[in-house]
Computed example of a mutant assay.
Amino acid sequence: MTLGRMSRPPVQTVAGALLLLAGLAFLVGCQGVSAGPSTRVVVVGQLTLSPASKAFGSVPLGTQQSQTVTLTNSGSSVSVSQVSVSGTGFQLSGITTPLTLNASQSTTFTVAFAPQTTGSASGTVTITSNASDPTLTIALSGTGTATAGQLSVSPTTLALGNVVVDTSGTASGSLTASGASVTVTAATTNDSVFSVGGLSLPVTIPAGQSVPFTVTFSPLTTGAASATLSFSSNAQPSTTTEALTGTGTPAPTHTVNLSWDASTSPNISGYNIYRAAYSGSCGSYSKINTVLNTSTLYTDSTVADGTSYCYAATAVNSSDEESGYSNIVSKVQIPAS
């Protein structure tokens, strides 16, 4: 008997079947529902600072300048464990740790600069937390400057009264420095009929001391006049002002002629003449001669019509020593017209 030849199953067919089964198994696995644990997404808190840096500018020694900083959380709850400041002269206040900031919550705190020395200074505020950026910083800067003094003027309004047109009248004031020495560099008025004198500029006034000055009023027309006297200095503020007032009056139609006996004291250089308004009694005397009068005669041509006056004279020797008033002439009446 002849045996027939047996054929072997093709290997390709078996392999193809195995691949198909594997593919079905893969599809079934993909379409099935997983019974394993689900994945949780955690949103980490995020802190921001506003502003991101602080510049204090120039701050005088002995003073302090403060600014506010805002800390905001834009994520989940954040725990702030520490807030600190470094740098000479910088200070921190208004915040206590540990501190919890919930989502969208903000808090503010204060950073101050009180310079200890002149010159530039820098520092840093550092915030430590469990936020996405665990360390936040703010750059700080400032400049310490020499303590600025203050300059005051007295009186605040200087009244020069009635002055005859085309003549001049003067009044005195004073400047006082406080806190620190002040250097005055300029003194100007905004009306040329008022001028300032008696100061040699620039002049440095030590703290607690004063210097005098004079203002001259030289009206060109009749009527009231006013102006502002401005002093420029290195004080704080840098400009100090004084109000000036005066009235130009018509030339008088009357004069008062004065004469007196010469002083018998030795070394007499001349005489000063004083005048006061009279209203029931003699008022406060003011010197009316602008230079020392070397004779025993004087004509007062600055009297106002309808006014009464008192007059006195003093003697001045070569050592610039001045005597007391002479006999006083009272109630010298000037006619009204």
Rank of each mutant, 00 (worst) to 15 (best):
T214Y: 11
V153W: 00
S295H: 10
S152T: 15
S168R: 02
S286R: 09
A180L: 07
L71E: 03
G87D: 06
Q82N: 14
P266G: 09
N102W: 06
T314E: 04
S181T: 08
V256D: 03
Q209A: 10
M6C: 12
E242K: 08
Y285R: 12
S34R: 11
V78Y: 00
V43F: 05
A171F: 00
T128P: 02
I268L: 05
G248S: 05
L220D: 12
S265F: 04
L19P: 00
P202V: 08
L20Y: 02
P115M: 05
N327C: 08
A159M: 01
Q82P: 04
G246H: 00
V125M: 08
Q67C: 01
A227M: 10
L258W: 06
S279Y: 02
A139G: 04
S7I: 13
S93P: 12
T39E: 15
L201Q: 10
S93W: 11
F113N: 00
T48Y: 14
I205G: 09
T135Y: 02
C30L: 09
T249R: 13
A114E: 01
V215F: 10
I328S: 07
A225C: 12
T314K: 07
S168E: 14
L136D: 06
T214V: 12
N317P: 04
A52G: 12
I138D: 10
A276Q: 11
D261N: 15
S53T: 15
S259M: 07
S319M: 04
S154L: 13
S86H: 03
P250M: 07
L24S: 06
S86I: 14
A103Q: 10
A22M: 14
A52S: 12
S263E: 09
T13D: 05
I268N: 08
V196Y: 12
A35L: 14
L92Q: 06
G161D: 10
S181I: 12
V125S: 04
T135Q: 10
S210C: 03
